[in-house]
Simulated assay, not measured.
Amino acid sequence: MSQNKIIWLDANSSDPVSSFRSKLGDAQTFTRADNCIQYVQSHSNESIYLIVSGSLAKEVVPEIYECSNLVQIYLFCGSIAAYAEWGMNYCDKLMIFNHEDDVLERLWNDLHKNLRDQAMLLSKRAEEYKQRVLEYRQPCG
C-alpha cells in the first residue's frame, strides 16, 4: 500500500499564517512548479493528491498528469470559468474549485474513501492469511 501525500503548490503556500495552510495540516508545500514536478516524478511510492493554484496549473499539470502516482488534482482558482475549457484535457484527474472549503471537503472525502478501500483490502488479505493458517494447523496430541 502506498502512502497518501497531500501536496499544495501555490506561490503563497509558504505563508505561515495562512488559514488554508493550517487547515491542510501536514501537507507538503511548494512555491515553484519545477520543485513540485520533480517531487511528484521522484516519489512513485506515494499516492499524491495535489492542490494547485490557477496561476501554476497550466505549467505543472501537463508535466505530471500521466504520473501513475498522481491520484487527484484540485485546481484552486478565482474563476472556474477561466480554466473550464483547458481543464477538459485533464478531466480524469482534475477538479476545479473557487472556494477553499469546497476544495478541503472534496479532498477529505477522497482521502476517506481511499483509506476505507485500503482498509477493506487489507482486511480481506488478513482473512485469506487466517484461512491459510487454519489449513496448516495440526491437532495437538
Rank of each mutant, 00 (worst) to 15 (best):
residue 26 D to Q: 13
residue 26 D to H: 12
residue 27 A to H: 11
residue 27 A to F: 06
residue 29 T to Q: 05
residue 29 T to R: 10
residue 30 F to R: 08
residue 30 F to P: 07
residue 30 F to W: 06
residue 32 R to K: 14
residue 34 D to Q: 14
residue 36 C to T: 05
residue 38 Q to P: 00
residue 38 Q to H: 05
residue 38 Q to F: 00
residue 39 Y to G: 03
residue 39 Y to M: 03
residue 40 V to R: 05
residue 40 V to F: 02
residue 40 V to D: 06
residue 41 Q to A: 09
residue 41 Q to Y: 01
residue 41 Q to N: 14
residue 42 S to W: 00
residue 42 S to V: 01
residue 42 S to Y: 00
residue 43 H to I: 01
residue 43 H to N: 13
residue 43 H to E: 02
residue 45 N to W: 01
residue 45 N to R: 03
residue 45 N to C: 01
residue 45 N to L: 03
residue 46 E to I: 02
residue 46 E to N: 07
residue 47 S to Y: 08
residue 47 S to P: 02
residue 47 S to I: 06
residue 48 I to M: 02
residue 49 Y to I: 04
residue 52 V to W: 10
residue 52 V to A: 12
residue 52 V to T: 15
residue 52 V to L: 09
residue 53 S to R: 05
residue 54 G to N: 04
residue 55 S to W: 14
residue 57 A to Y: 12
residue 57 A to N: 07
residue 57 A to T: 05
residue 58 K to E: 14
residue 58 K to G: 10
residue 58 K to Y: 13
residue 59 E to P: 01
residue 61 V to Y: 12
residue 62 P to R: 11
residue 63 E to T: 02
residue 63 E to F: 00
residue 64 I to C: 09
residue 65 Y to Q: 12
residue 66 E to H: 11
residue 67 C to N: 12
residue 68 S to V: 03
residue 68 S to T: 09
residue 70 L to P: 14
residue 70 L to W: 14
residue 71 V to E: 15
residue 71 V to R: 14
residue 72 Q to I: 06
residue 72 Q to W: 15
residue 74 Y to E: 04
residue 76 F to C: 04
residue 76 F to M: 09
residue 77 C to W: 05
residue 77 C to E: 08
residue 77 C to K: 02
residue 78 G to Q: 13
residue 81 A to F: 09
residue 81 A to Q: 13
residue 81 A to S: 13
